[in-house]
Simulated scan of single mutants.
Amino acid sequence: MFYTITDWDDAYANGPHIPDAALYPPRWQELAAAFRATHPPRQLGRSDLFLPRGDAAGLAVFIHGGYWMKFAPSDWSHFAAGPLMTGWAVLIPAYTLAPAARIAQMTSEIASAICAAGQMVDGPIALTGHSAGGHLAARMICDDGTLPDTVADRISACVPISALADLRPLIRTAMNATLKLDTPETLKESPALLTPRPDIPVTAWVGGAERPEFIRQSRLLADIWAGLGARTDLVIDPGRHHFDVIDALRDQNSPLTRRLLQPA
């Protein structure tokens, strides 16, 4: 069966294909506020750093999504729960949203936030992110100097969730009026078109009920990076859609949390 795209806006639209999609953002904000009330973060610039009791086992980084145009770290605090309960510190970094920033600037801001948190927390660094945040998580381990070697050498795992690994199709969407992507930037900022750093296990994680483009993009990243020598895996989480595929990060014993913190 042939697969082709005739409507790029629909191909990358999640809400219209998820029941009660409009209920998810306010629910996330409510759960995040409740979590922050009992686990107040340390402010690291505009980013949130959640610290466990006692010495941290390492630093987990969760980069939020929203097509690089929406949300803030405080909307996602509850997704720190799983790693935090395991004894890891958790950074939810802030980045300037489009149209105020181009994606290249967001890449730089995320890298700076990770470096700052890495100075405060010893041990391994485990990277994850959702959707646009999954793109940024994968972007951090590209072998182009995005992260300094001293920080990149500490990365124990990268788990991009429902990541956008190849940005070129987004030029054809209406959202590009805000993102302002052009071909040179997509070539520079698409993880699937770049070389990953060696020796970092990468798991492309995506929901089985997601839009075909998100499954294709996750498979693309795992396949291309495997061909460049990376140790990759693709997990298609049965029945999960784009808005609930990240719920498992709230559970310290979930397969998703374990893959992030204990990739071996």
Rank of each mutant, 00 (worst) to 15 (best):
A111S: 14
G54R: 05
G54P: 06
R27I: 10
G229F: 07
P238M: 04
G239V: 06
I200F: 04
R219C: 01
I246W: 01
I236K: 02
T86V: 03
P99V: 10
P52G: 10
Y12C: 06
P169N: 13
Y3L: 14
T183N: 01
P93K: 02
R197W: 07
G208T: 11
P124I: 01
S131H: 04
R258C: 04
D244L: 01
G15P: 04
D244S: 08
R258H: 08
F214S: 02
R27W: 12
I161R: 04
T6S: 13
C115E: 15
A138T: 11
A230P: 00
Y3F: 15
L179K: 02
I215S: 06
I63T: 02
N14H: 10
R139C: 09
E213P: 02
L181S: 06
P26M: 12
A33G: 08
P169V: 07
H130F: 00
P19R: 07
E109F: 08
A204I: 02
D199C: 11
P124S: 09
I171A: 03
L249V: 11
A138H: 08
L44Y: 09
I224D: 09
D75S: 13
G133H: 03
R259M: 14
S156H: 11
H78L: 01
S218T: 02
T96V: 07
H241G: 05
R42M: 13
I246K: 03
G15E: 09
P201I: 08
W68K: 03
D182W: 04
P40R: 00
F214T: 00
S254F: 10
K188M: 13
T107N: 13
P201A: 11
G15R: 12
H135E: 05
G229K: 08
G134Y: 02
S156R: 12
L193E: 07
D48Q: 12
G133R: 00
R172V: 01
M1F: 10
F62I: 09
I215F: 06
D153I: 09
P52C: 12
T203I: 09
A94Q: 10
A81C: 06
G129E: 00
I155G: 05
W28I: 04
K70T: 15
L221Q: 04
S112L: 08
A11M: 08
G133A: 13
K70C: 12
D233F: 04
I215M: 11
A34F: 03
G123M: 10
G207D: 07
